[in-house]
Design a protein around this nucleic acid. Structure first.
Length: 662
DNA sequence: GCACTTTATGTTTTT
DNA sequence: CATAAAGTGC
């Protein structure tokens, strides 16, 4: 990418006189502006890399950005540079300042399912959707920086009052577990900096220049943290695009974009409007779609890359047929264009849509990468081990205690745990601490207490090993002590047990290597996994088609994009018909369209399988909003007979091609 | 009271 | 099709 920078890009990189907002349309080179600005700060301004923090929204984006900066700086002088997600930065602050907040530095980071478990205990209801609503509500309060007491002041109904009571109990439960959830990673540092200005100044002095990517997706607490960290000096560059705000459901507030000029009257705004990614047709279609949304900042994206191919819109009878046809078309197109698999992406609204495409990819032997879906660390066998490791780092981590104590089964069942939990609750102690208490031993039978004590003794032993030995030794001792391989073979057939065991070995190797190379402790390793770490297999080097949700595809680009499942109820989502949320769904479609560089194929199914039955679908209303002159329809109401002939011609030529290959 | 087997059930998006 | 709650031997 040695192309010269354009005028606004260069201006954005050089501008250091005050706070800067870069309004960067899709494909306008915003990541390049951030990476080149980091290099500029280090090379031309003499700022030490450790005083610069770049904040992204996904771990993947953080990794990619670090790589690009390293390349620009030829590997030198980037030591200490902080490129991370908001949450990882929060975790770093929290680790250092934990004691000031009444936490030990060994706190655990809970994932969504741990939190779900805690909320469901507190809710006293077994209605799943009610629990999830409560969980979301608590998350919203935290993201809005409302404490239970503050939320109570605004309570309107009895139901709300009950939810706030659960919220208060949830907060104290987490404290007792020495655990934080994802929202705390932002909210707790904000609370700390609010109360203790000298600590705020310490961090302000450490992070002297901030660059924030995807600024449109910040929420209230993240914006508060940004304001605290940059302080009066306001040395930051925020890069964002209001048309790509797709995290409203997570508390992201485009109001933060509007608030920036208000909070910083000296704010400089630079617009990047030249798109270097897509053909004119793709951009035109994207522009007409997004024109249906209320605009915050006026901007007009243009491309110098020529018209390009028309965009196709395909209707298929069912979602299965859609997957089969799309994968076939993709394969044929790859032959015709002599393209690589990695030039293609299939994008969809929800993870559940991936299944049909995965199946087809496997059947047709096409390599694919599934982004977004459940990661390696979500596998049950990995979570089992992770529970032990979390427990070694922080014995008060109750969710980890419950999982570890019951895997493998060791004679501790539901009713014993209930008894233990009730006792621990009364004593405001963790499960682990409660086991050792005399008061607990007094109210339980020896044959129930015994396995619990043995379990705690095992933890003690492993902790002693962890204190002086390598990560690898701890893991080996652990696996031997719980006879994990035997346990796997006992519950599953040989094949599954072997696969699971190989996952376990991979995980151990990865941990040992990480522990050795980066001299990270078990605590740091488990924390970074909780933050959404990945095995760093080099995805960029693999030639494979990418299957991705629209959310996970943001920031990526592909030569050829298939945007699938464009049915009303899927995109836009069934529950997102309200005005504000419909606009967010439209932006999601906009993000999908603007991922494409050269060709774009839209498709929908007339019937979608849901559970056991097929339900009829209407094409997404967003298709009707696109500029028709750039579209070619195939199948469905819109198709002409001539178009159908083209379809069968293409299928015939595909079959010929495939036959030729064999 | 524990552990394993069956059956119902249901899917937005992510740190 | 995967996970989670209810049912059945021990």
């Amino acid at each position: 990418m040695p192309s010269p920078l354009n005028v606004p890009q260069r201006e954005a990189i050089r501008y250091l006189d005050g706070p800067l907002l870069v309004l960067a349309g899709a494909g306008s080179g915003k990541t390049r502006v951030i990476t080149e600005k980091i290099a500029y700060l280090i090379e031309s301004c003499g700022l030490d890399a450790c005083h610069i923090a770049a904040i992204t929204f996904t771990n993947k984006a953080a990794r990619e950005m670090r790589e690009r900066v390293d390349k620009l700086l030829a590997g030198k002088r980037s030591a200490g540079l902080n490129v991370s997600t908001f949450h990882a930065l929060g975790a770093r602050i929290l680790r250092e300042e934990a004691t000031a907040l009444g936490y030990k530095p060994t706190f655990s980071i809970l994932d969504a399912s741990d939190c779900y478990g805690i909320v469901s205990e507190l809710a006293g209801s077994s209605d799943k959707s009610a629990i999830r609503r409560l969980q979301a509500q608590i998350s919203h309060w935290k993201n809005a920086l409302l404490s239970p007491a503050q939320a109570q002041r605004e309570a309107q109904s009895d139901a709300e009052w009950l939810a706030i009571k659960a919220y208060a109990a949830y907060v104290s439960t987490l404290q007792a577990y020495q655990a934080v959830d994802f929202d705390d990673l932002i909210a707790l540092p904000v609370a700390l900096f609010e109360q203790q200005p000298e600590r705020r100044e310490k961090w302000q002095n450490r992070l002297r220049y901030l660059l924030i990517d995807e600024y449109q997706d910040t929420n209230v607490s993240q914006y508060a943290l940004l304001k605290q960290l940059t302080g009066a000096r306001a040395a930051f560059t925020a890069v964002g695009d209001d048309d790509q705000a797709i995290y409203g459901w997570r508390g992201a507030d485009v109001e933060n974009l509007r608030g920036l000029p208000r909070d910083y009257p000296q704010l400089k705004i630079i617009k990047l409007e030249q798109n270097y990614r897509s053909t004119g047709r793709i951009l035109q279609v994207a522009n007409t779609l997004i024109a249906n949304n209320e605009k915050l900042f006026e901007k007009k994206l243009w491309s110098a890359l020529g018209h390009g191919e028309p965009i196709t819109v395909h209707a298929y009878k069912t979602s299965e047929l859609e997957a089969a046809a799309v994968v076939m078309k993709l394969q044929a197109d790859r032959f015709e264009q002599r393209a690589q698999y990695r030039d293609y992406a299939v994008l969809y609204r929800g993870n559940f849509q991936a299944r049909a495409f995965e199946q087809q990819m496997r059947d047709q032997r096409i390599p694919y990468l599934l982004s977004g879906g459940q990661s390696f660390f979500d596998k049950a066998e990995i979570k089992d081990l992770l529970a032990y490791l979390r427990l070694l780092a922080n014995p008060d981590d109750d969710p980890a205690f419950i999982r570890a104590v019951s895997t493998p089964r060791r004679g501790v069942g539901g009713s014993t745990l209930q008894l233990l939990g009730a006792y621990a609750g009364r004593r405001h102690a963790s499960l682990y601490a409660a086991v050792a208490e005399q008061g607990f031993a007094a109210q339980i039978q020896a044959r129930q207490l015994d396995p619990l004590q043995k379990f705690c003794a095992l933890l003690h032993r492993l902790q002693r090993i962890a204190a002086c030995d390598s990560v690898a030794t701890v893991l080996n001792e652990l696996l031997a002590a719980i006879a994990y391989e035997d346990w796997l073979h006992q519950r599953d057939d040989r094949r599954t047990a072997q696969t699971k065991w190989s996952h376990v070995r991979d995980f151990c190797d990865w941990l040992a290597k990480k522990g050795e190379e980066e001299s990270k402790s078990l605590l740091e390793l488990t924390q970074s996994i909780a933050l959404g770490g990945t095995l760093d297999r080099n995805e960029a080097d693999i030639d494979a088609v990418r299957l991705s949700t629209l959310h996970a595809a943001k920031g990526l680009e592909f030569k050829h994009v298939f945007l699938v499942g464009l049915e009303d109820g899927v995109l836009p989502h069934r529950d997102a018909q309200a005005d504000g949320r419909l606009e967010e769904e439209r932006r999601l479609m906009y993000v999908g369209i603007t991922r494409a560089q050269r060709s774009l194929h839209l498709s929908y199914a007339e019937r979608r399988q849901q559970g056991r039955e097929f339900i009829p679908c209407e094409p997404s209303r967003f298709i009707a909003e696109l500029d028709r002159e750039h579209l070619r329809f195939f199948g469905g109401k819109e198709a002409t007979i001539a178009d159908k002939a083209t379809t069968s011609q293409r299928l015939a030529s595909l079959k010929a091609l495939l036959a030729e290959k064999r």
